[in-house]
Each structure stands twice: as structure tokens, then as C-alpha cells.
Design a protein around this nucleic acid. Structure first.
Length: 273
DNA sequence: AGATCGGCCTGGACGC
DNA sequence: TGCGTCCAGGCCGATC
């Protein structure tokens, strides 16, 4: 059972990184020689202006017209060297794939499974990052419009859950919150071309489950950690994801796990239609 | 252009 | 106990 950083987890990381990094200069960058990062060395010598987020991407504009784009992948985490038990010789100090020497701190990027990505691009130029360049609206902003969501859901031939995971209809929803939102909206993950009523319920449920998880600083099973090493508190509130075999809180039916679009999917076969 | 599918990567769970 | 196998899964690139 992994724990994948999705929008609430990435936002929780962003909130801890921004105050520490904004205004700080990157003196040097050290990279795992096996890592396939994109031109991260170019960040050296540049000042970080802010740490922002789009979907599951962390975006750090640098002075000189550059931008550091970061994705945590499956197991990525940022930790400050020598803080909160993160130091050579301490338990758990391992799998460091990149290190940023800053003015007054050393920031490590830990990533056990190496799915994470770090890239430096010209500011705003995401042409080489397909998912980011075609990313849908931020779910918690006014850009996430219910009418447009319905139209786009009706246009695709995909089942609703795989469609959500493409990041094109809405940004930042992954496997956990897709299952949670579909359960809350009582929509079957394999449904297609939702009615406006169902699509509106799903639209609202996506916003709710993400906002509630941000309040709890995300969902931790094992891997996801905030920058200070702490776990998020949302795992105890999951109703669908990882709950196969448990009774549906709405009607008591045993929750079923299937594979849909290559992803584990848990839902109530009775009330999610 | 949209949809689908395999590959990437590693540790933990599981079976014998 | 120890070894082998399977699974998790976001994104990317190839293919249809």
C-alpha cells in the first residue's frame, strides 16, 4: 500500500517549503548520477522567488527567467538536512536523489522509487512537460467550472475515473481522491457521459474531499511525509480508497475492488451508479 | 487528436 | 528462514 502525493499532499509540502525557500539563493546542486532529471544544474546561482503549485506540480520561479519544476512522483519528499531527525546516520536517511545547497540550509530530495521529476525550464515554458502544459483547472479555484466540467466529461469516451486521472479535466486528482470523490458523489467509476446532475455532484465532491484533506495536511499511509517529517491526518477519514471488503457507510454493501484503466479502484457496487 | 498500453522503479506483502 | 513472485501507481512515450 503506497501513499501517493496528490493535490492535498503537494499543497501541504508547498506550504512548508515556500516560507523557507522564497528569497533564498541556490548555491549548488548535487544530483544522483543515475537520476534522469532535466538540466537541474542550471538552478545553481539563481534565487528562488516563490514556491507555487499547479495540480501535483511544485513550481519555483527563479531569477534570471528560469523555473524549477518539481513532481514528487510516488515517493518523493523534501527534507532539510540536520532538521527533524533527517541527517546521515539517522534511521530513514536514504535514497537522496538530489541536494540543493541554499544560503542558510541544505534541502534534500528523497525519492525511493525514482518516479519523481525535477526540471529547470525557461519560466512558463512547459512545452516539454506534456501533462503540465495540458493541465486542467485548479479544482479549488473559480476556474473549475461545473458547466465546463460537464461538457468535457461528455466529450470524452473514457470512463469517468480514468478521465479524472488524465489531469486534463481537473488538476491534481489521483487514485485516492478519485475513489473518494466518486463515492461521495455516488457515481460509478466506470460511468460515461454523466448527466448534468451527476456531473455537478462529482464537481462538488472533488472540491470537498480535496479541501478537507488539505485541512488535515494530506493522507499518509507510509511514504508521504511533509517537509518536517510529519504525517498527514487524512488517512483515518478515507471511506473508499483501500477499504475493499468494508461495509459502505451509506448502505452497508461490501465495497468492491476492481482494476479500471490499470488502476486499483474501490467503490460501492450498489449506491455508485 | 484521442485512447490505450507497457515501462519505469523499489520495498513490502505474500506464498511455499 | 529465505527465496521468488507479485503489487502499488503517476506519468511518459509509443502505437493504433
Amino acid at each position: 500500500m503506497g501513499s501517493v502525493p496528490e493535490l492535498p499532499e503537494v499543497e501541504s509540502v508547498r506550504r512548508q517549503l515556500h516560507p523557507r525557500l522564497a528569497g533564498s539563493r541556490i548555491r549548488a546542486v548535487h544530483l544522483d548520477p543515475q537520476a534522469r532529471f532535466g538540466a537541474v544544474e542550471r538552478a545553481a546561482g539563481h534565487r528562488i522567488e516563490a514556491v507555487r503549485r499547479r495540480g501535483k506540480y511544485l513550481l519555483a520561479p527563479l531569477d534570471g527567467g528560469l523555473e524549477l519544476v518539481m513532481h514528487l512522483g510516488m515517493t518523493g519528499a523534501f527534507r532539510f538536512r540536520g532538521e527533524d531527525g533527517w541527517a546521515p546516520g539517522e534511521a530513514g536517511f536514504s535514497h537522496v536523489r538530489a541536494t540543493f545547497e541554499l544560503d542558510a540550509a541544505v534541502l534534500d530530495f528523497r525519492d525511493v522509487r525514482r518516479f519523481g521529476r525535477l526540471t529547470v525550464v525557461a519560466a512558463g515554458d512547459y512545452a516539454g512537460i506534456e501533462t503540465l502544459s495540458r493541465l486542467g483547472p485548479e479544482p479549488l479555484s473559480d476556474d473549475f467550472d461545473a458547466a465546463r466540467f460537464h461538457v468535457e466529461l461528455a466529450r470524452t469516451r473514457m470512463a469517468v475515473k480514468p478521465a479524472l486521472l488524465t489531469q486534463r479535466l481537473v488538476a491534481g486528482v489521483g487514485n485516492i481522491y478519485a475513489d473518494e470523490a466518486l463515492w461521495r458523489a455516488a457515481v460509478a467509476p466506470y460511468a460515461r457521459r454523466l448527466s448534468r446532475g451527476r456531473s455537478d455532484r462529482l464537481h462538488r465532491a472533488i472540491r470537498e474531499v480535496l479541501a478537507e484533506s488539505i485541512e488535515r495536511e494530506g493522507t499518509t499511509f507510509r511514504d508521504y511525509r511533509m517537509v518536517n517529517g510529519e504525517s498527514g491526518r487524512n488517512a483515518a477519514h478515507l471511506v473508499a480508497y483501500g477499504q475493499a471488503g468494508r461495509p459502505c457507510p451509506r448502505d452497508g454493501t461490501s465495497l468492491r475492488k476492481v482494476v479500471l484503466g490499470g488502476r486499483g479502484t474501490t467503490y460501492c457496487p450498489r449506491c455508485q451508479r
